[in-house]
């Protein structure tokens, strides 16, 4: 049981971070405002969690300008996708394990 819990990714312990990653798994990329609306969090809160995911290289950011407005897009990296899949598999195992 202890080993299984260790398999859970620390980066996804937080709900906002888990939410960001879930949304990026099924969308090629999403911009900052869309993520904000989906997760219903403040700018600062979202920015700090995105930063944390960027630091472990699970999420990549592209900045571009639409006219004069900056538009920041985020996408899940290959490393992030793998980590998310492992995290999901660990969750499933934990649920199965505590069933028996």
């Amino acid at each position: 049981m202890k080993n299984l819990i260790d398999k859970l990714d620390k980066a996804f312990e937080n709900r906002v971070r888990l939410g960001i990653m879930s949304a990026l798994m099924v969308n090629e990329r999403l911009n900052f405002n869309t993520l904000k609306e989906l997760l219903k969090v403040t700018d600062g809160n979202l920015a700090s969690h995105l930063k944390a995911l960027e630091q472990v290289e699970y999420v990549a950011m592209q900045k571009e300008f639409i006219g004069r407005k900056p538009n920041t897009n985020y996408n899940a990296t290959g490393k992030g996708r793998e980590a998310f899949k492992r995290h999901l598999a660990a969750l499933e195992e934990l649920i199965k394990g505590s069933n028996s």
Binding site: L18, S22, A23, M25, V26, N27, T34, S98
Partner: peptide
């Protein structure tokens, strides 16, 4: 038992976020 519910709710949150963000 409580932890199992916690994991289940985490999974259902993931599922709901995937649905809401893409459909």
């Amino acid at each position: 038992m409580e932890t199992k519910d916690q994991y289940l709710s985490e999974i259902s949150e993931i599922k709901s976020m995937m649905e809401r963000s893409s459909r």
